[in-house]
Design a protein around this nucleic acid. Structure first.
Lengths: 203, 203
DNA sequence: GGCATAAACTGAACACTGTTCAGCATGGGA
DNA sequence: TCCCATGCTGAACAGTGTTCAGTTTATGCC
């Protein structure tokens, strides 16, 4: 009777090993460049074995996307649980999001750019991903409740803010040849632009 | 394969025919899903022939990126050559850029997202692409000259604005499952947020 | 016309990809 | 000892981008 559980544990162990290998390789070489055979080589199993633990290559990426979202949520919630001025928290959240992308560029690309283009990561996006977004949505709601926003449509505002952050993050990561000004200045400018753009105007 | 018919319509410009076929296929099925053999089939030549006209698959995409940039430039310059209020022009430019992406979603993804991830389109980006960016940069310079901007760093501001536009455009195109509010409202909100964010604050 | 030369084109081959599946090895229960 | 479920293998399949020796075709010259 304990045999089944032990088997299950061993099986879980290899699954984790495959994920580790895949994560390392994906982050180092990119999703496309990593073949199932490379992953299999790294864990020292036959290529076919991978398919006993994952439906296909996309499912491996999906799991890694989930991890990325989870890490992002941790960072974002640290801000959420702070009793500072809502607009200041908003600014910090924007900086934090972009910095997260720059700290884990390959993870960011895998999760927010590459995954979508292979129709991958839908599962992760609809669960953990939405949870991460919800985190920021709450911050926006706080600002609205404080009466400092230009509109009271929490979705319209949070989606706009997300688009702004994502735009800078993805450009900084992917447009390697572009003559950007110093990234920190861009991040600061983006955070200020977005917050100033969505806050109530004095008149 | 229909050699006779092909000869009749051939004459010259096979390169253009290949580009046409590739553009059609790329836009319909995406870069990854289109193989050299598919393109060759469509123009009724052997796969190897493609390589007499293009160095590799990436170069075909590069040329299509150039086309996309050229189309974008046309739209952006129409705004540039208008004697309206610089901030109004800025707002229109933002709307126009995002709308361009939504009008040609596949072209946009190919040029601004997919190309970068294959290290493709560098040539196009450094020539036609920079020209398109320059177009917007001039608009920002006009605003600075009019003394209505929060900073006088034309690069910092135009890069921030580009990031904002690109963010919304790419999210709307790629995040198909996400519960976005009505796109036009998001576009309007983004245009207002960015312009209000970079303009000089009263007092 | 006939013929040489150059250009255009072919398609088989190479090394790779994700994925499948018949068969083999092994550990645990009877 | 035998049985058999399970884990695992590795060859095979259909596809990919790319190359290149070899064939076909067009052209210029006598």
């Amino acid at each position: 009777m304990g045999v089944k559980q032990r088997r299950a544990r061993q099986k879980e162990g290899l699954r984790e090993e495959i994920l580790d290998a895949a994560r390392t390789l994906f982050v180092k070489e990119g999703y496309e460049s990593v073949s199932i055979r490379k992953i299999a080589d790294k864990v020292e199993y036959a290529p076919g074995t991978i398919y006993l633990y994952f439906r296909d290559k996309a499912e491996i990426l999906d799991k890694i996307c989930e991890e990325t979202f989870a890490k992002l949520i941790v960072r974002m919630q640290a801000i959420e649980n702070d009793n500072a001025d809502p607009l200041d928290k908003m600014r910090r959240a924007i900086r934090t999001y972009i910095q997260f992308g720059l700290d884990h560029p390959h993870h960011y690309v895998l999760t927010f750019i590459q995954a979508k283009m292979h129709g991958v990561g839908l599962t992760a996006f609809q669960t953990t991903g939405m949870q991460a977004f919800e985190c920021m949505r709450q911050g926006v709601q706080e600002c609205i409740d404080a009466g400092v926003m230009v509109s009271d449509d929490v979705d319209e505002l949070s989606q706009t803010l997300w688009a702004g952050m994502h735009g800078l993050t993805s450009l900084l990561i992917t447009c390697v040849g572009f003559p950007f000004v110093e990234p920190n200045r861009l991040i600061e400018r983006m955070a200020n632009t977005l917050v100033d753009g969505v806050r109530k105007k004095p008149d």
